[in-house]
């Protein structure tokens, strides 16, 4: 559906997006995730032809956005970060302008207008001035504008920023509904949001694409190890001796010690479960276990690791590429 190839944007010496590759398949909801300033908006602006790329191409359904902009843009509905609505118009006037500008046939215009007003739930405010509408409704009017002309791809840049919690939930539901008929790409810096809505997560950091996969896969791939967090009453040497015979311990790390209670973490392989072994070993050595917890790498960890300050391309990325070579990570 969309092929992004070698996409690069430089502002003088500053590189906003560098050498981005991505294949967007039809019918899925993509979440572009990254910290603020990672290059999400820049990427989206280039995908929609609002911004020229320094290098690289974007093809929408085979049409190059820079070479054949009219054909490519007709397949895209775009909602920029700030909804591009005219405050002195009513939603109905605004939408009929957008429909006409997008070249929707005159006889179909009325029907499409009513349809997008219904889908985005803006019919009730269609004759009020946009100036007087709340941010949530402006956002919806913006989305309605993006939907006009029935584009195959809907691109939404931070669609839920500045909305109250109830509106956020409504917009997410709306996005899910859209995802049934369209390919949707949305950007966000909020992980839970992308997780809740998207079929695919694309993580961007400092203008680089660092991962692109389903939420589940990302979690699994990064669950390269499992950690067991323990609090044991006893001395460090004694605990070390008791755990020594256990098989499958990759790393043993001792942490704080408070009033005879020693906290420690045991790292194991992703499939090993050492809980029972640890229990019996400690019991046999008469070292009471006061607390035990298993932790798997969560999407948060993945995100933090991938976008961390010191590690623009962490080693986890290489693992990802090995196992998911075709998904479009860059080496």
């Amino acid at each position: 559906m969309i092929e992004i190839d070698h996409l690069t944007k430089r502002y003088g010496p500053h590189t906003a997006v560098e050498d981005l590759y991505l294949q967007v398949e039809p019918g899925l909801i993509y979440g572009l995730l990254g910290p603020n300033g990672a290059g999400k908006s820049t990427t989206m602006n280039m995908m929609t032809g609002c911004l020229a790329a320094t290098e690289g191409t974007v093809r929408i359904d085979g049409y190059d956005i820079f070479e054949e902009p009219a054909k490519a843009k007709a397949k895209i509905g775009y909602l920029p970060e700030m909804p591009p609505v005219y405050p002195e118009m009513t939603p109905r006037e605004y939408l009929s302008f957008v429909a006409e500008a997008k070249g929707v046939q005159k006889e179909m215009r009325g029907g499409q207008l009513d349809q997008v007003l219904r889908v985005t739930d803006t019919a009730a405010v269609q004759n009020r001035l946009i100036r007087n509408l709340s941010k949530g409704y402006r956002q919806r009017v913006g989305i309605a504008g993006a939907l006009l002309g029935d584009p195959e791809v809907i691109i939404l840049d931070e669609p839920t920023v500045g909305l109250d919690p109830r509106q956020i939930i409504e917009i997410r539901d709306l996005i899910r509904t859209l995802g049934k008929k369209h390919t949707v790409i949305l950007s966000s810096h909020i992980l839970s949001e992308v997780r809740a809505v998207c079929d695919r997560i694309v993580i961007i950091s400092k203008g680089h694409l660092v991962a692109s996969d389903t939420p589940e896969n990302l979690e699994q791939l990064f669950a390269g190890s499992r950690t067991l967090e323990l609090v044991v009453r006893g001395e460090e040497p004694a605990i070390r001796a008791a755990l020594a015979p256990l098989r499958g311990v990759r790393r043993l790390q001792f942490g704080r010690r408070e009033e005879g209670e020693q906290s420690l973490t045991i790292e194991t392989g992703p499939k090993d479960d050492l809980r029972e072994g640890v229990f019996f070993a400690c019991a046999a050595a008469r070292l009471p276990i006061l607390g035990m917890e298993t932790r798997k790498a969560s999407l948060e960890d993945v995100f933090i690791e991938l976008t961390g300050q010191d590690a623009p391309l962490p080693k986890g990325e290489a693992e990802l590429s090995d196992q998911q070579g075709e998904e479009g990570e860059q080496p």
Binding site: N45, T48, G49, C50, P69, A70, K71, K73, A74, I76, Y78, P80, M82, P83, P84, V85, Y86, P87, V98, A101, K102, G103, G145
Partner: peptide
């Protein structure tokens, strides 16, 4: 100023 130029750039019009 009101960011509607983004709409103009995204429209399939030259």
């Amino acid at each position: 100023r009101q960011y509607t130029d983004q709409l103009l750039y995204a429209l399939p019009l030259g």
